[in-house]
């Protein structure tokens, strides 16, 4: 498989919920092709038996104390909402 050859920008943009113009798609396709070609060099590394590293420090689980902490007030929570009414965020209708 040569992954760099087949990045499907339209499909990926749909997964990312990101509307792209035709010009953006074309430009990204070329630039990402170059970048993917560059990162393909990782195939040269022997990673047999290596545990993937998800973090900058070797910590694997952290439990939080089960205590009640103050949350946002309604005003704080709505302070940055694009649209609001009756202490609620107005959202587009999703069920007809």
């Amino acid at each position: 498989m040569n992954p760099s050859a087949d990045i499907n920008i339209e499909y990926v943009a749909r997964l990312a919920r990101l509307a792209l113009t035709a010009a953006e798609q074309q430009k990204l396709s070329q630039q990402l092709g170059d970048i993917l070609h560059y990162v393909d060099k990782l195939k040269q590394v022997d990673v047999t038996g290596i545990e993937p590293m998800a973090h900058g420090s070797p910590v694997f689980n952290v439990w939080g104390a089960d205590v009640i902490m103050a949350g946002f007030s309604v005003d704080q929570a709505l302070q940055n909402a694009p649209e609001q009414r009756d202490d609620s965020i107005v959202v587009p209708k999703i069920v007809e």
């Binding site: 990782l42 590394v45 993937p52 590293m53 998800a54």
Partner: peptide, 27 residues
């Protein structure tokens, strides 16, 4: 946008192992 698209691609089905998982191992 460029990074969101690249990041979504390397996490997407069929590419995850080749890119993201391999990168974590090399990390």
């Amino acid at each position: 946008k460029r990074r969101i698209i690249l990041g979504t691609h390397v996490l997407s089905s069929g590419y995850y192992d080749a890119y993201y998982l391999r990168a974590q191992k090399v990390r």
